[in-house]
């Protein structure tokens, strides 16, 4: 993830990778969704500050459209979706990864 963030492939042509990019710890988040717990209220999709989630097209066992992760790289680990989910169907784990 660090390599992508600091890579020279961005739109800014003179961007270079910071010299200490490999020493700086960075936040790593992982989003787990349990689709079968979802009741389709849509709070996680609506109130994610980074629009990481979107309503998916498929149906779960109860007949609701569970959310899916569409922009995982935008997740800041704020855990708002996890806290605002009334069914406890989303887990956001964050940890600080120190490059080796």
């Amino acid at each position: 993830m660090a390599a992508n963030t600091f890579s020279g492939n961005g739109s800014f042509p003179f961007w270079r990778e910071p010299l200490d990019a490999q020493q700086i710890p960075h936040l790593s988040t992982s989003i787990t969704i349990f689709p079968d717990l979802c009741k389709g209220c849509g709070y996680c999709v609506e109130f994610c500050p980074a629009q990481v989630l979107a309503t998916s097209d498929r149906l779960n066992a109860k007949g609701y459209h569970p959310p899916e992760v569409v922009k995982p790289e935008a997740c800041t680990g704020c855990q708002f979706c996890m806290r605002v989910c009334p069914e406890y169907a989303i887990i956001v784990e964050k940890k600080l990864e120190v490059p080796t």
Binding site: S30, T32, P35, C75
Partner: peptide, 25 residues
């Protein structure tokens, strides 16, 4: 940064230890 699909036992919600999960949903 990864997206995991359903692996119920792999990660546990922080509220799970305070919930009677047999009563849920």
């Amino acid at each position: 940064m990864g997206t995991q699909t359903v692996t119920p036992q792999a990660v546990q919600h922080p509220y799970t230890r305070y919930l009677r999960t047999d009563r849920l949903p």
